[in-house]
Design a protein around this nucleic acid. Structure first.
Lengths: 232, 232
DNA sequence: CGACCGCAGCTTGTATACAAGCACACGCAC
DNA sequence: GTGCGTGTGCTTGTATACAAGCTGCGGTCG
């Protein structure tokens, strides 16, 4: 495992943060990660810098690096950004929709409905679905920006889907959106999209009330080592 | 100048790219930059990685790093993103506006009207104005994402203001937006904002016709060393 | 027993050394 | 003259060495 490059290290760390395998508040030492991944500090450090840029990691010089707590402000930001982009994109839907994209979206929805679907698999399909909707209106490239900005939102959503809302509900909302888009009913599409995104946001608020220790405190003051998550 | 840290290096390089001091297509060697800035490769390299993430730098492993050409696709993306965010934010304007923010925006507009204003100074004021508008509706934090995504747009705009549209026109449009916002005329505010953002986009298209060599070609194929900008 | 001071061990930040690979120029063969 | 092969010099990618600093533990003194 010694020949790993930075992209792999970055992808691995990002996945571990987003899937909560690395819990919010947990310390991440460059040396430890390097040893664990079988590489030197350099690619690990460069990956941490990128993750810090996304807000998923907090670096305190000469002290340590820590997985960011889920920041309600950033969650709200990502939610606003996502809603703005996805709703505005609906305005730019062409009159005739790309049949290939529509077919892919249908297949995606079918996969979402599979009975014993895994949580992470559902998440991947969810990402692909929203990305596909953007592509349908010719703004697929904007997804990269949205995706990068919604790391905090994703972590909060995972908590919500873990403990609360079943994927079935989300899948039904997805189908409602696609149906409205396909029939060209822009008003209904916007309403369905808004309902869906707001439901996601409500899930986040609910899980925040249940597990406040995973979220950042009100003030943005420096949370140092004593702030690591201790479960009991 | 040896005690420079990475943030300074990053800020310096980003400024040089955005102001066209480092022209699109120009090669940027880690060693050269390190020597020029009086630091080692490490902070330079880390800065280049961040700039690559923003799309301002292209890194070709074992070959070289180059300032990205202005990519029309990314320009359009940034334009769409910006329009979506700024227009959607107008929907969330509170009934009573923060007086301090309004005063700051007024002062900003006055500064924009100063006769012999410098181009870069106008750009800073422009950024501050749009950021302030977002703050007015409580979504100031979203500006960071927009700002990071619109590097290509900014470079194109700079070209446009250099050679075409005078800052006076932009300042007038800014004032129209703020007036509509202040009087609570949401429809007029959206219209003024849309007019302004579309005018910016038209400037970009015009300058693209004039100086196509600064823009990326249609295909996204690898532009290597022979593709550096040679002026004549 | 409590407060305070100092050192040990960790952290990140920076500089440097080594590895691997591509592009271009030079020279040779035809 | 033209085409091809080889070598040199550059590039980025990775590993390691050194620098500076904060934290927390332990000893010591009051």
């Amino acid at each position: 495992m010694a020949g790993t490059n930075r992209q792999t290290v970055y992808a691995t760390l990002r996945r571990k943060v987003l899937t909560m395998e690395l819990q919010p508040g947990a310390p991440v030492s460059e040396n430890e990660l390097a040893a664990a991944l079988g590489v030197s500090r350099t690619p690990v450090r460069e990956s941490l810098i990128l993750l810090a840029e996304e807000g998923l990691i907090q670096v305190f010089p000469k002290v340590g690096s820590f997985v960011s707590r889920v920041d309600p402000v950033r969650v709200a930001d990502a939610q606003f950004l996502r809603e703005a982009v996805e709703l505005t994109a609906l305005d730019d839907l062409p009159t005739v929709l790309d049949p290939a994209l529509l077919a892919a979206l249908d297949a995606n929805l079918s996969a979402q409905d599979r009975p014993g679907i895994d949580l992470e698999e559902f998440f991947a399909l969810d990402e692909e679905f929203h990305h596909g909707l953007l592509q349908l209106s010719g703004h697929g490239a904007a997804w990269a920006t949205v995706s990068a900005a919604k790391g905090h939102l994703d972590r909060a959503r995972r908590l919500g889907l873990h403990e609360a809302s079943p994927p079935t509900l989300n899948a039904a909302q997805h189908r409602a959106i696609l149906d409205a888009v396909r029939t060209g009913d822009l008003t209904a599409a916007r309403a369905a999209m808004r309902t869906h995104l707001r439901a996601v946001f409500d899930d986040v608020e609910r899980i925040r009330a249940q597990s406040p220790q995973l979220f950042a405190s009100n003030d943005g003051s420096t949370p140092v080592r004593r702030n690591v998550v201790v479960w009991d």
